[in-house]
């Protein structure tokens, strides 16, 4: 399972799973895309990103908000990540995706609310709350 949605009264909460931290980033991006419900177009797109933060948790949220910024301003959706550099405090990567005609759901931001990276039975998991 890549992620599952958890009940929240007003916003959208997801629990994301991954064998590696990189996979958490990829699956969290997938969750973000699924929430947006994009109407995808054929045109292929890519975006370079480079972010530094103070912890893996903060880096994940800042990464998602970075993707969300490009999604909203460029009308694009990103399905794959080519990691050039990656550790708990830095990510340098190329995001690959497609143009999107429109989105059915708005996300205001990925939040830091009760954010925690856990490792259980050889699997990482984290819970992310999206403000919608």
């Amino acid at each position: 399972m890549k992620y599952k949605q958890i009940d929240h009264p007003a916003d959208i909460k997801v629990r994301v799973f991954g064998k590696t931290k990189k996979e958490i980033f990829l699956n969290a991006l997938k969750a973000l895309n699924d929430i947006l419900e994009p109407e995808i177009e054929e045109k292929q797109t890519q975006e370079e990103i480079e972010l530094e933060s103070t912890s893996i948790e903060n880096l994940l949220i800042e990464f998602l908000n970075e993707a969300l910024y490009f999604t909203e301003t460029k009308k694009e959706i990103y399905q794959d990540i080519d990691f050039k550099e990656f550790n708990d405090e830095k990510i340098k990567a190329t995001l690959y995706g497609q143009a999107a005609k429109e989105f059915k759901q708005e996300i205001k931001a990925a939040t830091y609310h009760e954010l925690e990276f856990k490792k259980q039975d050889d699997q990482y998991q984290t819970t992310i709350l999206f403000d919608i």
């Binding site: 933060s53 103070t54 903060n58 205001k108 939040t111 830091y112 609310h113 009760e114």
Partner: peptide, 30 residues
């Protein structure tokens, strides 16, 4: 709209760093 969302995103990120500087500890990062 998007402008307000971005201002909040930008400054929550900045505050996250400021918390260490001012030695503020709180039960929720948000």
């Amino acid at each position: 709209r998007g402008l307000g969302h971005q201002v909040a995103t930008d400054y929550i990120k900045e505050m996250m760093k400021a918390m260490n500087k001012y030695k503020i500890q709180l039960p929720d990062r948000e």
